[in-house]
């Protein structure tokens, strides 16, 4: 059969648009990763704390809410760097567009700070509180009084704050995926599955980050188990995403081309799927079944895989546009 010729010549050569869209560089995948990690930390921390009425046992879990705020701030800094009209950043908070995941995200981010701060303050042990109050700047009576009031408020609001942390964590994790998933002009993003995928990856990477620190044995066992579940679910969601590409006709074929033979194939399969999910899955199974303590190797791989997943998905989405369908 002879091949039909199709040649398209355009005079358009707009920067960041042509020959293929590349409006988002490293800042967005880094933010999506850190946002996911923070979402995961919030879900795991709330999950651990809601299981009992006691404060968390290990220092790492007590301090993790504050770490999550630092990571979120770094992520938001990356987001800010990506804005091309930075002086208008305040405009995010003069509007709410219910059809824009970015608008939802802006408001979720604002709510995360006070809620996680209350969760963090209420999680601190008496020992850590005493250490904090002994610091130089805490000696001022007005500051000391304010801190005591803050601890008192946080202790009283702990249960509602934990539930809010859980809800906002789920919202934050899902929105980072839906942000891409609702941009239907990009074939590889054109899927609502990115919401649960990024949320699950966030839970997995958030749990992995906690496992890098010294934890109480019971906490560690629980987190390793949850991480195991998150990895299995994430693998299933990635499988569904690939099936979506497979059954999506010409558009699906183009959407998946970059990770099914194209330039991002080695990164996706070796770093995300094998290194970031399958190897940690095997290691976690050994840890759970053979009752051995977790090593740093598995969580480090999960974090690397989660970061790479964001970079790969942001890249393949931008590479796959409607103009490829003729």
């Amino acid at each position: 059969m002879r091949q039909e010729t199709l040649e398209i010549v355009t005079t358009r050569a707009n920067p960041l648009i042509d020959p293929a869209l590349h409006v988002w560089g490293w800042e967005i995948p880094l933010y999506l990763f850190l946002g996911g990690v923070v979402a995961g930390l919030m879900v795991v921390l709330a999950g651990l704390s809601l299981k009992s009425t006691d404060r968390p046992k290990s220092k790492a879990v007590q301090l993790a809410p504050f770490l999550s705020l630092v990571l979120l701030s770094v992520g938001m800094g990356a987001l800010f760097l990506d804005l091309s009209n930075k002086l208008n950043v305040y405009r995010f908070y003069l509007a709410f567009n219910p059809t824009s995941p970015m608008s939802w995200g802006s408001w979720i981010l604002v709510l995360v700070y006070p809620v996680v701060l209350v969760t963090g303050l209420s999680s601190l042990s008496d020992e850590l509180r005493a250490n904090l109050m002994a610091r130089g700047f805490m000696q001022k009576p007005s500051v000391a009084k304010l801190m005591r009031q803050a601890f008192s408020f946080a202790d009283g609001a702990r249960r509602p704050a934990l539930w809010a942390t859980l809800g906002l964590g789920i919202g934050l994790g899902a929105y980072t995926g839906l942000l891409l998933g609702t941009l239907t002009a990009r074939l590889a993003w054109n899927a609502a599955i990115l919401g649960p995928l990024f949320l699950t990856s966030g839970v997995s990477t958030g749990a992995a980050l906690l496992l890098l620190f010294k934890l109480d044995e019971a906490e560690e066992k629980t987190i390793v188990r949850w991480d195991l579940v998150a990895i299995v679910v994430e693998l299933a969601l990635l499988g569904l995403m690939l099936i979506d590409f497979g059954v999506g006709g010409a558009a699906g074929e183009l959407a998946g081309a970059s990770i099914l033979g194209g330039s991002w194939t080695p990164w996706f399969w070796s770093v995300v799927v094998i290194g970031g999910l399958l190897v940690p899955l095997g290691l976690n199974l050994i840890e759970v079944n053979k009752h051995v303590r977790a090593t740093l190797f598995s969580p480090a791989l999960i974090l690397l895989g989660g970061l790479t997943l964001r970079f790969v998905l942001v890249a393949i989405g931008q590479e796959s546009s409607f103009s490829m369908i003729q």
């Binding site: 869209l21 409006v23 988002w24 990506d82 091309s84 208008n88 995010f92 002009a185």
Partner: peptide, 9 residues
Amino acid sequence: TGCKACIAS
């Protein structure tokens, strides 16, 4: 703000 969501959409 130059967030570029519109461009990607």
